[in-house]
Nucleic acid binder design. Structure first.
Lengths: 196, 196
DNA sequence: TGCAAAGCGGACCTACGGTCCGTATTGTTA
DNA sequence: TAACAATACGGACCGTAGGTCCGCTTTGCA
């Protein structure tokens, strides 16, 4: 695949749309209130341009999300401890989950929009698969652990966008409290493996 | 409020709609494919009737869901062990979660439709609040346990409709395997409390 | 400078949830 | 059982939002 590069104006518009969408999601109450037409208008482009650049709503959200998440994925893949690969599994599981939680706290609206979007369940998304595989692998490296696959799913469920949104938004729990609770819970899960 | 009883035809239609919706959801692939117009048509009534009877889509789904769930709620509230109130907490937590899981396995499409429906997060729903409160209370009765509130959320997240759908549907895991994994995981969580 | 190719934009289409209101059914009173 | 309110019916209708189409413009290459 030669994948020839896009024209200059196309690239520019892509960036503009990207920025506009980002801003709209950041400054909204309910992500569903931000329509594709809104985004196009805010970016100063036509709807056609928007849809050509990102395919559909889910595509746009995925792209936004991926770009935000990239630093964290880098850090996990090849960064220094505690996120990087050199970290002992237990500690790394905690770090990865904490990073995920923090990310979702920092990008609540966007993440919420993404997990809402479309009727496709979040579990089909390739980025979910990646995180799950990573988590499962780490869990299986912990001696005496069992059920890594299911445990990985549940740990990821513990940081799902709408739960995080509920705890931080409706319940008004402070960030540090949620982080602490997640850490406590995860620690418990990790320790229980070796005693069962 | 005296809440006068509805007319005979209204009551009859309510039942008909109810049954039609039930059947459509049971026999569909994606719950979003079942539109309100479909349900009205299948029930042989006009859309007006449908909306008058249930308010909106979420209302219909809630009603369906509640009616299906009623036996379990009865059993939890006032039934014999292991679901009923006389059961020791640890055991009851396991039983309640297992019952919830089985219910969702048996009513996958409907539950999925409900948790999808609307932009309102599942966490606002009063039935979620009820289960959460129940679970939290039980968890707090277990000596040495901490973080019952968050733990209750996570345990409920472990049986969320779309996860269950994914495990049973896409992954094709057999029912008993999922149940076993949930039981293992939950047991681990319950035991970890007393060692931390 | 000329000319494809790539891209633009917004009118347009479709589908779905939800409303409205003229008509039909119910049930009550005599 | 005739008459009349109250209640409910049903499907035409509406608004909205995602997504498409196509005539026009911009870009980039020779």
């Amino acid at each position: 695949m030669p994948e020839r590069k896009p024209r200059k104006d196309a690239a520019r518009n892509r960036e503009t749309i990207f920025a506009a969408a980002d801003a709209l999601f950041a400054g909204c109450e309910d992500p569903n209130d931000v329509t594709m037409a809104d985004i196009a208008a805010a970016a100063g482009v036509g709807k056609g341009t928007l849809f050509r650049a990102f395919g559909d709503r889910a595509g746009l959200l995925r792209t936004l999300y991926a770009s935000r998440l990239e630093p964290i994925e880098q850090a996990v893949e090849a960064g220094p401890p505690p996120l990087g690969p050199a970290t002992p599994p237990q500690q790394r599981v905690l770090a990865v989950l904490d990073a995920t939680l923090c990310f979702k706290l920092d990008n609540r609206r966007l993440t919420l929009a993404l997990e809402d979007s479309g009727s496709t369940s979040p579990y089909q998304a390739e980025h979910y698969q990646r995180w799950h595989r990573l988590l499962r692998t780490m869990l299986e490296q912990i001696p005496g652990s069992t059920g890594g696959d299911f445990t990985a799913h549940v740990l990821l469920a513990a940081v799902r966008a709408d739960l995080v949104e509920y705890l931080a938004g409706q319940e008004g729990l402070p960030r540090e409290r949620i982080r602490a609770q997640l850490a406590d819970f995860t620690t418990g899960v990790l320790n229980s493996g070796s005693s069962g």
